[in-house]
Design a protein around this nucleic acid. Structure first.
Lengths: 231, 231
DNA sequence: CCGACTTCGTGCACGCGTTCACAAGCGCGT
DNA sequence: ACGCGCTTGTGAACGCGTGCACGAAGTCGG
């Protein structure tokens, strides 16, 4: 299936020309804050208010929004609904994006049952595991399938995002299989560095890494300032 | 996050004076690669080999390691065991660091059962949930406790790292409670921006955010290069 | 003992991202 | 209609991180 969406949104050609990665990484945060504001009934927001809600500086937020050809009104702020629309568009979430999850262990199970996907523009279209005991299990509105079905479903879904939640030892093999089937975006929870072709995008989430980074800061704090704050 | 206050000349040697945050974020990756090499029986590694295994450039790796003192041998490389020791030390993982997990839903359950903590220098010392039905449940070698016990255990553990795996609506409240009890490092899985005092360090892991970032790249790829070479 | 090879450590330049500060633009009250 | 205040959008300076390229240092073979 060829992507007809390429020229569909011709309304703002220069807008999506270049959006810095650092900005892209913050857009989801803004989007979430905007959704929260929308549910509170707010119709418009100032950059300062939105920045505070997102935990960033107001100048940074304005520059970020300017990168995607922002529609803000001077003297007033941003129209919430409008901004939601533009960010959603910039994120490529105009239509629901399919996701397949491989590995239905502890983490995969949690991911499959996580409600945040559906409400954020994603649709889990497949769960896979190579353990025959797990195949057939029903999680959410999906049934765990054997790895043999992976190729067909990936092609059928038209380039879904692949989520790897397998043990470390199986991750590379699963990744290769996903890539071979046509996946070009991978979210990896396994604690390994995946080797992929240059045209495949991988993001890694490693729980231990995050804890270790926190540990450094905690250690620094403890070393430099022996907790004798107040008595 | 008081990252700007890095100019302290404490009693510690110059080695741990200043380690850039970007470097700190990569140290766990190196450490994992080193552990893998150690298990393969490798006694020493060149920067190039370790860099490849870690998915970074060799120059970057050498510079990173230089920030925590030069412990490499020219013409040979780094002694694996020695480097593991130094990185572990730099990460403040000389002794096992306690972790408490609040929220034992899907994700919290997965985290509590995750074996990666124990093997990486962390010890889960407490699981908490405010759902009476969950209290008393046994996960791994811990039992789920009520939130009332949180203060006492946090003080007893001596400033553990707090992991928040609650629904979004409860996250801020739980965070406040952790901070009040003395926690200064928080790993947040809830999709909210936590408000904390300046001396508390928060890292956020948001599954939806990661997917949305991937979505952008996938969308760009689809828009720019519809790979349809066949006629 | 010496030369050649290997690999670390690092000075330097480049580019990206962040931050400040201000001019331009818009609405509102008078 | 007109100025006044508020907020956006952005130009410019700053700082950090990255990558290159090379000197320094240590090992191995002759």
């Amino acid at each position: 299936m060829r992507s007809g969406v390429a020229t569909q949104t011709a309304g703002s050609p220069a807008a999506r020309a270049v959006v810095p990665d650092a900005t892209v990484a913050r857009l989801p945060v803004y989007l979430r804050a905007l959704h929260a504001l929308a549910e509170q009934g707010r119709a418009s927001v100032s950059s300062d208010a939105l920045a505070t809600a997102s935990g960033v500086g107001s100048a940074k937020l304005r520059k970020d929004l300017s990168h995607l050809g922002s529609y803000g009104t001077r003297g007033v702020g941003y129209v919430v609904a409008e901004l939601v629309e533009h960010i959603t568009d910039a994120l490529g979430l105009g239509e629901r994006r399919p996701v397949v999850i491989v590995g239905v262990g502890n983490l995969g199970h949690a991911l499959a049952g996580y409600g945040g996907f559906d409400s954020r523009g994603f649709a889990v279209v497949g769960l896979f595991d190579d353990d025959p005991q797990r195949v057939g299990e029903r999680i959410g509105r999906q049934v765990v399938r054997p790895l043999e079905d992976l190729d067909a479903l990936v092609r059928d879904a038209g380039g879904p995002i692949g989520v790897i939640a397998t043990p470390a030892q199986a991750a590379q093999q699963v990744c290769d299989r996903l890539v071979a089937a046509g996946v070009t975006s991978v979210l990896n929870f396994a604690p390994v560095v995946l080797r992929v072709p240059a045209d495949v995008d991988v993001r890694k989430v490693d729980l231990s890494n995050e804890l270790q980074i926190l540990s450094v800061h905690a250690h620094r704090r403890a070393a430099h300032a022996p907790v004798e704050v107040s008595a």
